[in-house]
Amino acid sequence: MNTAILPRTLIEMDKVYFSYGHLDVLENVTLTVNQGDFLALIGPNGSGKTTLIKIILGLLFPQQGTVLVFGKKPSQLNSLRSRIGYVPQNNTIDFHFPINVYDFVMTGRYPLIGPGRRPGRKDKEAAHNALEQVNIEPLGSMQIGKISGGQRQKMLIARALVNDPSILILDEPTTAVDVQSSENFYELLMKLRSRGITILMVSHDVGVVAQYADRIACINKQVIIHGRPEEIVSAGNLEKMYGREAAFFHHGVVPHIVVSRDHAHDAFSQGNKQD
């Protein structure tokens, strides 16, 4: 994978404000994602996580503040768009759609192929490769609704991987996935990460994600805290964010925290601008 031309800071949000009409969703959000990071974005339902992701992806535009992705405005990414692998919330897909798993993954190549052309040998290889990477190659000819929740998840990731992206952005990928598949899913993420893919993931299962991510940002309109998992989970910040009787606490404190990687530390000291 060629990451040479990308800046070290892949995503930079500075004092971003966003509202849908009169509904203020994001206030003064500052956040950075560096190359090699695994940043988990957590927060209660309706706290603006998806909105924040959509701003990064250039689907929504903030009223104030600056957003840079690969050093450029999201609307001016042009060919750099293919360096982003996006895994949307899975309720955005109609799984009854008449398409099979292989073709679904192939649609990830379509923007690069251009109108009036058919997928070529390279595209077919890329689609097979992507299916292989997530271990669902044998399912290629299945209709996308006829596979399990965990397999659908992998299929969405395969589509995001099909252009060999530098960063993977995932929105609540473990929703509607059983525990076993969810474990497989994190193993897959770690494998991708070890190959140098940067990961930004929205999640609501704080307990699990804290075991894998090297930085966590808690959001509820504002990014309340931004740091390494052990700091976030221990400091009682979650209480501040979720309120005192949040269901989260019934699971107890996070049992185990993976040692954060070296680069994560300096990433943290850079990105730790709390407002």
Binding site: L77, T107, Y110, N163
Partner: peptide
């Protein structure tokens, strides 16, 4: 001419927009 593009549009317009459609 826009076979692939229209397929992306109806399948998942948001992800397609992200990818540059």
């Amino acid at each position: 001419y826009y076979y692939k593009e229209f397929l992306c549009l109806v399948l998942d317009d948001e992800s397609s927009a992200v990818a540059g459609m």
